[in-house]
Write a protein that binds this DNA or RNA. Structure first.
Lengths: 212, 212
DNA sequence: GTCTATAAAAGGATAGAC
DNA sequence: GTCTATCCTTTTATAGAC
């Protein structure tokens, strides 16, 4: 519609802004897919969200499902990047779990989007072994990160009780619930909810609250 | 395709089987909508699942969204019926919470379907005040049932700690997570997961495990 | 790399016979 | 109440100009 288009000169924009057209399309797809799901989102919607036309999608991707698969990979990679940061910042086991929970508060938007994408994908007929493996890897990383931390906490006597793997699943399941509720309930206070859970968790693990 | 159709004689089938065509359609829609979501399910799919043709959907319902709205109502009514049973069977506050959790294990299939329907509906553009109100009523009932039970438990000194409303939300959020995981993870052991949560909950509420 | 225009397919909805 | 046949709209996907 007669939009003026700036010619691209020099390096593409830096920072969080999308770097190229393909990534721009994946980012747009991610937003829309999380909001409405695969079938409800048309390639026109995605192209429009990215200020492009449908033909551009077929220039960069084979078809609609190819774009969606690329988008899932993209979202998983992003999430895993954030995961790896958490384990770097802190040493105390309880502090690491705390950071883990807090990350879900601050990245709630991204993580709940990914979760919705995965639910959608799992019930679709476009599954591939490769994407299935990527999703499994994502869950395994999550599970192991927390379980390892609890194991370490028990070795140094910070945590007294609980099977590490079981507790890790308990935490993940609760966090999934919190992500879901943030989608579902308008005025859901995810921060308060996760903090309440944290308190419950410390009681259950026999952690006395001494952070040093 | 030349299917032989038995003439309907006498009373329709009794028990859990669908009683009439409209209910049969709602039941079929529920199954498919929970599996694939509104846009991914075609009226042809639904008609086929019910062993009928698309025209029958338009005989019983105004259009596709009308059928979906009726299906959500239907699923909520079913769930609320089950809810009301729980509060009748037991008296001890801890036993009631226990039954509440166990109900989510045994009715996991129905409840997770409803949950998926609601997520789908909330992000659709077919929302009506009436269905919105029905969903809110569903959540309020859930919340109040558990909160009232905890309040009573504190009055009779069975539970020692925790704000009833906050704890009620904690329970609901975890259960939502468990429902989601049962959709998401193939070999998810919902029974074990909820039992683990129950143990955590008793610790957190200061319940000593004396059921008398 | 990006657009316009259009072909091809799928899905929602209706008319009319039985 | 139920079916067959069909219309109309939406959506996916491609061809070809710039």
């Amino acid at each position: 519609m007669g939009q003026v288009k700036m010619p691209k000169v020099g390096r593409p924009p830096q920072g969080t802004a999308p770097r190229d057209t393909a990534e721009q399309l994946k980012q747009s797809a991610l937003t829309l897919l999380a909001r409405k799901g695969y079938s409800a989102v048309t390639i026109k919607d995605i192209a429009h969200e990215a200020n492009l036309t449908t033909a551009m999608i077929y220039y960069h991707f084979k078809d609609k499902t190819d774009l969606v698969r690329a988008t899932i990979e993209y979202a998983i990679e992003n999430a895993l990047q954030h995961f790896s940061k958490v384990s770097k910042n802190t040493d105390h086991p309880a502090a690491l779990i705390h950071d883990w929970l807090q990350m879900h508060v601050s990245l709630q938007s991204d993580i709940s989007k990914l979760l919705k994408l995965i639910v959608d994908y799992r019930h679709s007929d476009m599954r591939t072994p490769y994407i299935d493996a990527a999703i499994r890897h994502f869950y395994d990383t999550e599970r192991e990160l927390v379980a390892a931390c609890i194991r370490r906490g028990q070795r140094v006597q910070v945590f007294k009780t609980g099977d590490p793997d079981t507790v890790s699943d308990l935490i993940s399941t609760f966090l999934d619930g919190a992500m879901l509720r943030s989608f579902l309930v308008d005025d859901f206070d995810i921060k308060a909810s996760i903090e309440m859970f944290e308190a419950t968790l410390w009681t259950s693990l026999g952690f006395d609250g001494r952070w040093d």
